[in-house]
Design a protein around this nucleic acid. Structure first.
Length: 581
DNA sequence: CTCAGAATGAGTGTAGCG
DNA sequence: CGCTACACTCATTCTGAG
C-alpha cells in the first residue's frame, strides 16, 4: 500500500509562504447596505381595471379598512382609479397613523428603538426603508397581497406580515402565518432580556428584520445599491485558517470582534458555494466573524466545500486519530485493482443526497465493452464526466458503481452502520448522510475545546441531522454532559438516540423536533437546570443555497434555509442570557 | 403508501488565453 | 483586463413498481 499520494495535486499547499498570517476583521459593512431609490414604488402591472368606486367598496367592506381612511386615500390618489394605488395609499396612511406610537403587538424595541439608538444613521437612505417596505407589500403578487392584507386587518403590522410570509414560504396559508406571528410574538414577549440589552443586540435584531425586507426588495428586481465592493471571497486553496501537515502547522492569529467573543462558543456551518451575498449576510448576523472556508478534500478523500463561522480559538488544533484516508485508493482499496489509468481522480467529489442509477452504470459498461484496450478519448471523457458527476468508483472490469451507504459513512467520518437499521430506507440513508458534516473536518475545528473543558461540555445542537457534531466531540474525547438537540426528522433523531445509547453516554440527551418551539422560556429552563451552554453548533438547511437545487435555490430567504435566522435567534438569546449571569 | 430511478440546469467561480 | 470555456454543486419532482 503506497499510502503517499504520489500525484495528489491538492496536497501541494504552499504552507511556508508566510509563517504567520494576520486575519483581520470585517470592515463595518452596514453603511453600504440600504440605498433604496424611491422611484420603484409603482403598483405592479395594475391590471385590475376597477374604478375608484368599487375600490372604495372593496376596501371598506371586503377588507374592513376604516371608511375615513379609504376616502382620504382616494382623495390623495388623485387622478388614478387603480385599486392597487389606492390600496397602497391606504396602507401608507394606516402606517402613518400607527407610526408615532409602537405598533400593536410589536414590542417597543422592534421598529421604533432603532431610531433611538441611532442605528439608522448608518443607513444611506435612512428615512425611506419603512415607507418602501410598505410599498413592498403592495407590490406583491396578488395572492401575497391578500395575505398581507388579511394579516394587517388582524392588527398585525405590515412588517410582521412580510416577515411571516418570508419565513413560512410563499405557499403558506393565513392560518400558518398567524401561527408563526403569534409564536414569534410569544418568543419576543419572553425576551424581557432584550429590554435591558446593550444597543448592539437591539441593532442586531433590527438588522435581522431589515435584512429580510432588503432581500425582498432585491427579489422583486428592485435596485439595491452596489455592495459588492466587500463581498466575501473564497480562499485558494480552500484550507480555512490552516490545516495540519507533515511539515507542521502554520501559526495564525485572528482578532475576533468584541461582540463575537463567548461564552458561549458557537459554530455555524453551511455550503461554501451559496448564492452571492449569502455569506455576507450570515457573517453580518454572526457578529461580523469572518467565515472559515474549508474543502474537506484537504483532510479526507472526498471534497466538501463548506463555510464555518465560529468564535473558537484557532491555535493548538489537532486532528482526530486515526487520520482519515486521504485518497480514494486508501479509502476504498478494492477499487484500485480496477481503476483504469486514464481515470486520474484521487479524490471524490462532494457526497450528495442522491446516487447514480444502475442503468447509468450499465450504459457505461456497455460503452466500454466495445474496446479491448483503453477506449478512445471521447468515450473516456464521457465516462469520466459521469463518474465525477455521480461519484462512481471502479468495482470490476468496465464496471463502475455508486458508493455504498457504509462507504459514505466512513468517508464522512461516522462509525460504520451509523445510519443503518431502525427502519430507515436506503434512499433516506443517502439523504441523511449527504446532508451531514464531515466529522474529521469539524472535529479539527472543535478540538481546541478538549483542553478548555476537561470536565465535558453542555451542547446545544441545532439542526443536528445524524449528529455530526456529537460524533466529532465524542471522538475527540470531550465528554457530553447535557445535549439539547433540535432536529426535525424523526429518522435522524432515532439515529442519534441509537448512537447515544450504543456509545454508553453518561450525559443527558434532550431531543426537540421543532426549532421554533425552542423559545426563551425553554432555554431559560435548560440553563437553570444545568447552568448554561458551552457550545452552540448548527448547520442550518442548505436546500435553498445548494447548487444542485434546480427548483428552489432561493437563497437565505428560502423556505428551509431561512431557518438560519432561528440559529441566530437562539444563539443571540443564549448569548444574552449567559452574559447576564 | 413507500421506495427507487430518472429527468430536470442555473449559478458561481476559476483557469486559460489573447 | 476582458472574454470564453470549463468544472462543480449538503436537491426537487415526477413516475412507476410493489
Amino acid at each position: 500500500m503506497d499510502g503517499n499520494a504520489s500525484n495528489d495535486e491538492s496536497c501541494n499547499i504552499d504552507w511556508d509562504t508566510d509563517d504567520e498570517r494576520e486575519i483581520g476583521n470585517f470592515p463595518p459593512s452596514s453603511s453600504s447596505s440600504f440605498s433604496v431609490p424611491n422611484g420603484d414604488v409603482n403598483a405592479g402591472s395594475g391590471e385590475g381595471c376597477s374604478s375608484a368606486g368599487s375600490a372604495k367598496f372593496r376596501l371598506i367592506y371586503d377588507m374592513k379598512f376604516p371608511e375615513e381612511l379609504v376616502l382620504k386615500a382616494i382623495e390623495q390618489s388623485g387622478e388614478t382609479e387603480d385599486f392597487e394605488s389606492i390600496l397602497e395609499t391606504v396602507l401608507v396612511l394606516q402606517a402613518l397613523e400607527n407610526s408615532p406610537e409602537p405598533q400593536k403587538n410589536v414590542p417597543s424595541d422592534q421598529c421604533s428603538s432603532a431610531y433611538d439608538d441611532g442605528f439608522l444613521d448608518d443607513l444611506s437612505d435612512s428615512d425611506s426603508w419603512c415607507e418602501s417596505s410598505i410599498a413592498d407589500a403592495t407590490n406583491a403578487e396578488s395572492a401575497e397581497d391578500q395575505r398581507v392584507l388579511a394579516l394587517t386587518n388582524m392588527e398585525y403590522s405590515v412588517e410582521e406580515a412580510l416577515i411571516a410570509i418570508d419565513r413560512c414560504g410563499p405557499g403558506a396559508s393565513v392560518a400558518e402565518l398567524t401561527d408563526f406571528i403569534t409564536a414569534a410574538q410569544m418568543a419576543k414577549a419572553d425576551d424581557v432580556f432584550y429590554k435591558e440589552l446593550p444597543d448592539e443586540s437591539k441593532k442586531k435584531r433590527k438588522l435581522y428584520e431589515l435584512e429580510v425586507l432588503k432581500k425582498k426588495k432585491r427579489e422583486r428586481g428592485a435596485y439595491v445599491a452596489a455592495e459588492d465592493n466587500e463581498t466575501i471571497r473564497l480562499p485558494i486553496p480552500m484550507v480555512g485558517f490552516g490545516l495540519p501537515t507533515a511539515e507542521g502547522s502554520t501559526v495564525i492569529h485572528r482578532n475576533l470582534p468584541e461582540a463575537a467573543i463567548g461564552p458561549p462558543y458557537f459554530y455555524y456551518e453551511n455550503v461554501a458555494l451559496a448564492p452571492k451575498g449569502v455569506w455576507d449576510t450570515i457573517s453580518r448576523f454572526l457578529y461580523d466573524v469572518q467565515p472559515e472556508f474549508v474543502d474537506s478534500k484537504h483532510i479526507c478523500a472526498a471534497a466538501r466545500k463548506r463555510g464555518y463561522v465560529h468564535n473558537l480559538p484557532i491555535d493548538k488544533r489537532f486532528m482526530l486519530v486515526p487520520l482519515p484516508p486521504r485518497t480514494i485508493h486508501d479509502a476504498l482499496p478494492m477499487t484500485k485493482r480496477w481503476w483504469p489509468s486514464w481515470d486520474t481522480r484521487t479524490k471524490l467529489n462532494c457526497l450528495q443526497t442522491c446516487i447514480g442509477s444502475a442503468r447509468l452504470t450499465d450504459r457505461i459498461r456497455k460503452a466500454l465493452e466495445n474496446y479491448e484496450d483503453d477506449p478512445p478519448k471521447n468515450v473516456q471523457k464521457y465516462v469520466i464526466d459521469q463518474c465525477k458527476k455521480w461519484n462512481f468508483v471502479w468495482v470490476g472490469r468496465n464496471k463502475v458503481a455508486p458508493l455504498e451507504c457504509d462507504e459514505v459513512e466512513m468517508l464522512l467520518g461516522f462509525p460504520k452502520n451509523h445510519t443503518r437499521g431502525g427502519g430507515i430506507s436506503r434512499t433516506d440513508r443517502y439523504k441523511s448522510l449527504g446532508n451531514s458534516f464531515q466529522v474529521d473536518t469539524v472535529a479539527y475545528h472543535l478540538s481546541v475545546l478538549r483542553d478548555l473543558f476537561p470536565g465535558g461540555i453542555n451542547l446545544l445542537s441545532l439542526f443536528s441531522g445524524i449528529g455530526g457534531a456529537e460524533v466529532a466531540l465524542h471522538r475527540l474525547g470531550i465528554r457530553l454532559k447535557n445535549v439539547v438537540s433540535v432536529e426535525i426528522s424523526e429518522v435522524n433523531r432515532n439515529i442519534v438516540r441509537s448512537w447515544w445509547e450504543q456509545t454508553n453516554q453518561k450525559g443527558t440527551l434532550i431531543h426537540i423536533a421543532d426549532v421554533q418551539k425552542l423559545n426563551a422560556d425553554r432555554l431559560e429552563q435548560y440553563m437553570a437546570s444545568f447552568g448554561g451552554f458551552d457550545l452552540i453548533v448548527g448547520g442550518s438547511p442548505c436546500n435553498n443555497l445548494a447548487g444542485s437545487n434546480r427548483h428552489h435555490r432561493d437563497g437565505l430567504e428560502g423556505e428551509h434555509s431561512s431557518l438560519f435566522y432561528d440559529y441566530f435567534r437562539i444563539l443571540d438569546l443564549v448569548k444574552c442570557m449567559m452574559n447576564r449571569r
